[in-house]
Amino acid sequence: MEHQTFGGEVTFPHEAPGDDSIKRIRKTTIILSVLTLIELGLGLAIYMMHKNPDYSHSLVHLIKGVVIILSLGKAFFIVSIFMHLGDEIRNMIMTIVVPLCLFIWFIIAFLWDGVSWKDLRNEYAPKDPVKHEQVEQPAHEGGLK
């Protein structure tokens, strides 16, 4: 085993010689592949359900929720095992993970905004046909009557 130096900055190597990291890589690869296969299976299930015109919307939403959770699980395995974040010092992990909490606000705020935008448009567009039909009609036929 060759001795490696890290410019004096690093106190201990991230991987001890002769450990079981190959086994861990293999295990993670299998987990990621299985999760992807399950996701694909669920995606196919959604596709099949869409073929039936009166499919259950709430069930499709539930399946989509499961797929999103599975993807977050994949993200966890990639970051903690493949990127070795799980092996770092806790303080360092926190400098990465804590700023990511901004996403909680980011996602809620902007998806909420999207829904509100749709609701407002659907509420006001039918009540204000002139404004919304002007684009299609020649100018002299539009306007208030």
Binding site: G43, I46, I107, F110, L111, D113, G114, V115
Partner: peptide
Amino acid sequence: ITYGTVRMSSDSWPDPN
């Protein structure tokens, strides 16, 4: 998230399948 916002603001969306 831009994608999510725009998709949420649309009444319907193309089916990826």
